[in-house]
Nucleic acid binder design. Structure first.
Lengths: 333, 333
DNA sequence: GTGAAAGCGCTAACAC
DNA sequence: GTGTTAGCGCTTTCAC
């Protein structure tokens, strides 16, 4: 079907008594056009309501001006924040963001990415859950790719990652000082790179007198809520969520059960999503540089979009934010 | 610059010893192709890593397969949820969503929309803050448009709205039963249609013995946080936020100030964002049908994208969700 | 300074 | 069943 579009460049050209090329020049602000013609074309264009077809421009120019962004879950404020960071930065360079939400289903990611790739000039993958081989396979897309919050094998793609070790050390010192010797980590999805990062950071940070337990949870509010009972059963005095959503979910469950936080149990998380500050008690957490993640991702990607080489890695620092959800461990017995 | 792309349909055609058309047919799954050729073409395509250019397809087919979505603020879980609803539904029909976040700046909306329009087949405006004339002016884009959570003047565009009156009535009865006779509404942005909807619903619902005050706040967490002091100063025993973010912001401030909720002050909001359930105390709120908003928006838009006529309005029902943040009014000092 | 013409990579009549 | 051909609406050399 050849749907006839409304006002094309040709109609404007005809109405203004000039050639397509001239109209094109005017619309793109090429300076070498007779000012008189410029105004005439502008007028006609406005009168006719001419709006250049983005698609045609894209095809002709060989670029789309679109960057595809894949997130595991838009409902997670962390990713909403990263996305905002990307959009804001990309927009300055005239790019728009096409978003795909994988809904925490790793199997969906590849499909989304192939779709995104066909409509974009570059890709940003936020905390991708897909397998390492799948990730590596993306190089076949021959499109610039930047990965956020996961280090691709052999540095295949530029990536912006975070170093949490120091902050986790600080958290463990903090908990140790409060007398917690039995911690329970509510683990995230095995597919998330952050999961293993966080888990190993914890393992290497805990004091020798401290026992670190681990039970599976997930990445969402409900996962934390559901895992809380089991976590309590371990006898831990402090629950550490894979992320703030999990921590908040657990927190809610504790309060339902009448477990005072932090008096009976302490809770901590990762990310510092905006709500971590607004729950009560406020949540102690390892803060990720959220908007910065997005900004840096764009800055890494941008040069490649212009065919230049750019730097390949950027490491940001996480930091510990202490709030009332962590307090002194209750006395034994 | 005529950037030469990698593998075009032509290269595949040549390598497979067939015409472009045949390759096109194969790639699009047209059934009338010799099975043997199908496999041959598929093989060659895979071997060469051929991926059809979305842009060229778009131009040729006269459609982009993209729907543009404008939101006031992606960080608001309400809009994240609506967006998820749209994406999920649109995806079933083979459409992707291009998102623009106006960051609660009404002046930015038009610019974003014009941009979006050039890259999409249809537009969904979520709670647009722009002026009525501006909104009306969008009909010049001659693209199907659906508006969510705001009734366009003269029903210019199809819209999905919510009827909150009943739920607000229920809220007012609830508060009255608890003995609250002095309420303070933390108003949202004047530009938001929901703002006037909610305010007038409240006005027409309150009992005659009740005093309804109003102070300006905004649409975000910090706005509620900042407005809480002034709200308290009114002597109201219940604070009602324009939305849950405002309510939660105020709630946090109250707790900072040591005002027990709901013992000294009750708090309520609008939307029922996911965190309303997870704060403590849980937030009483008028729940919007969030994902449904998105779904319905797509269902309204979809027929128009196919050149058919569709229904023009859809009204969903809000409902009251009572949680511990509202309790009996304190005894008079 | 402006126009003519050749694409960008694909789809879809229309013939064969 | 398959190839030929004419676009989709724009950009961009290259002449004039």
């Amino acid at each position: 079907m050849r749907r006839t579009r409304q006002v094309t460049i040709l109609s404007v050209a005809a109405a203004a008594g000039v050639s397509k090329s001239t109209v094109s020049r005017v619309m793109n602000g090429t300076p070498t056009v007779d000012p008189e013609i410029v105004t005439r074309v502008r007028d006609v264009a406005t009168r006719l309501g001419y709006r250049p077809s983005g698609t045609a421009q894209n095809l002709s120019r060989g670029r789309t001006g679109i960057v595809g962004v894949l997130v595991p879950d838009l409902a997670n404020p962390l990713f909403a924040a990263i996305l905002k960071g990307i959009s804001a930065e990309a927009e300055k360079d005239g790019y728009r963001t096409l978003v795909a939400d994988a809904n925490e289903q790793p199997g969906e990611e590849l499909r989304h990415l192939h779709e995104l790739a066909r409509q974009s000039d570059g890709l940003i993958l936020c905390g991708p859950r897909m397998s390492t081989p799948d990730l590596a396979g993306l190089s076949e897309l021959d499109e610039p790719i930047v990965v956020v919050n996961r280090k691709p094998a052999r540095s295949l793609f530029p990536s912006v990652t975070v170093d949490s070790q120091e902050a986790v050390d600080a958290l463990c010192r903090h908990l140790d000082a409060l007398g917690h010797t039995r911690l329970c980590y509510l683990a995230g999805p095995a597919e998330a790179a952050a999961e293993s990062d966080r888990w190993s950071a914890l393992q290497s940070s805990i004091r020798s007198r401290t026992k670190l337990l681990r039970i599976p949870a997930g990445a969402m509010l409900d996962d934390g809520h559901a895992a809380a009972d089991e976590a309590l059963a371990t006898g831990a005095t402090c629950l550490i969520g894979f992320n703030d959503l999990v921590a908040l979910g657990a927190l809610a469950r504790l309060q339902e059960l009448g477990f005072a936080v932090p008096d009976r149990v302490s809770v901590a998380g990762f990310d510092d999503i905006v709500y971590a500050r607004y729950t009560s008690p406020g949540l102690t957490t390892i803060a990720m540089p959220q908007t910065e993640f997005g900004q840096e991702a764009w800055r890494l990607l941008s040069p490649f979009l212009q065919g230049r080489k750019g730097r390949r890695t950027r490491t940001l620092q996480a930091r510990l934010v202490i709030r009332p959800s962590t307090g002194p461990a209750p006395m034994r017995g």
